Amino acid sequence: MKIIAMIPARYEASRFPGKLMKDLAGKSVILRTYEATKQSNLFDEVYVVTDSDIIYKEIVSNGGKAIKSIEEHESGSDRIAEAVKDLDIDIIVNVQGDEPFTKKTPLKNLLDVFKNDLEKDVDIASLKIKMDDLEEINNPNNVKVVTDEHNFAMYFSRSPIPYPRDEKYAEYFKHIGIYAFRKEALLKFTKLPMTKLEAAEKLENLRFLAHGLKVKMVETKEIAIGIDTPEDLEKANAVFKIK
């Protein structure tokens, strides 16, 4: 199997404009994410794919590989699909540009899903981590996921799910925005219409489910700090100071 990593990167962000170019312990957030992905040594190639000249130059000037998008795109997955449509590859891992603490073990566990999926039942694999803090559970910036008994995703939401009518059964899992796609599933996704659920929650993963794509969730114990707000950036800088 030929496996690549793609890091979609927009300069503008509604909650935290320009966040990917913010300083994180002496390097930009996007460069930190690129380097962490590269250092996993799991991929034949790692690319940043972006609509931004600023981000493109940031990666290339630091010895990395970047692809400039030709068209405008609604989602990171659409952006990646444009970049990979003519590439001879099997699996694409979509690493979010604001995940500078990306580590090898969770990525390897994602890739193992496809290596063990002899029947090719899985279209997409992604990560989840258990949450216990009530404030984090109620935070709409933390996307929650519920799964069936085989760990296939049933629904993603910014709201706390499930509703804890009986609290002893309620478990909460945060979706970590790293996806691994079969190439054919990614290209299929880009041709599917946006659904009302996706438009309402602003979550592209709801389009996968609405159109029958099977998303296998892999639980991880790794603590991920995504950079969604200035406060997240402060926490991330504090982590680097501890290292």
Rank of each mutant, 00 (worst) to 15 (best):
Met131Asp: 02
Asp133Arg: 05
Asp133Phe: 06
Asp133Leu: 05
Leu134Trp: 11
Asn138Thr: 03
Asn138Pro: 01
Asn139Gln: 08
Asn139Met: 03
Asn141Lys: 04
Asn141Ser: 09
Asn142Asp: 07
Val143Lys: 07
Val145Cys: 04
Thr147His: 00
Thr147Gly: 01
Thr147Ser: 00
Glu149Arg: 08
Glu149Lys: 07
His150Arg: 13
Asn151Val: 01
Asn151Gly: 00
Phe152Trp: 05
Met154Thr: 15
Tyr155Glu: 15
Tyr155Gln: 13
Phe156Asn: 02
Ser157Lys: 06
Ser157Tyr: 02
Arg158Lys: 12
Pro162Tyr: 10
Pro162Arg: 05
Pro164Asn: 06
Glu167Pro: 07
Lys168His: 14
Lys168Ser: 14
Tyr169Thr: 15
Tyr172Trp: 10
Tyr172His: 03
Lys174Tyr: 04
His175Asn: 14
His175Gly: 08
His175Ser: 12
Ile176Asn: 03
Ile178Glu: 00
Ile178Trp: 00
Ile178Pro: 03
Ala180Met: 08
Phe181Val: 04
Glu184Tyr: 10
Ala185Phe: 08
Leu187Pro: 02
Lys188Cys: 05
Lys188Asn: 05
Lys188Asp: 11
Thr190Val: 14
Thr190Lys: 00
Lys191Pro: 01
Leu192Cys: 04
Thr195Gly: 05
Thr195Pro: 01
Lys196Thr: 15
Glu198Gly: 03
Lys202Pro: 00
Leu203Arg: 11
Glu204Asn: 08
Asn205Met: 14
Asn205Gly: 14
Leu206Glu: 12
Leu206Arg: 08
Arg207Tyr: 10
Arg207Trp: 12
Arg207Gly: 11
Arg207His: 09
Arg207Met: 14
Phe208Ser: 12
Gly212Glu: 03
Gly212Leu: 07
Lys216Arg: 08
Lys216Glu: 12
Lys216Met: 10
Glu219Ser: 08
Glu222Lys: 04
Ile223Gln: 09
Ile225Thr: 14
Ile225Gln: 14
Ile225Asn: 15
Gly226Asn: 12
Gly226Pro: 02
Asp228Ala: 14
Pro230Leu: 07
Asp232Pro: 07
Asp232Gln: 13
Lys235Trp: 06
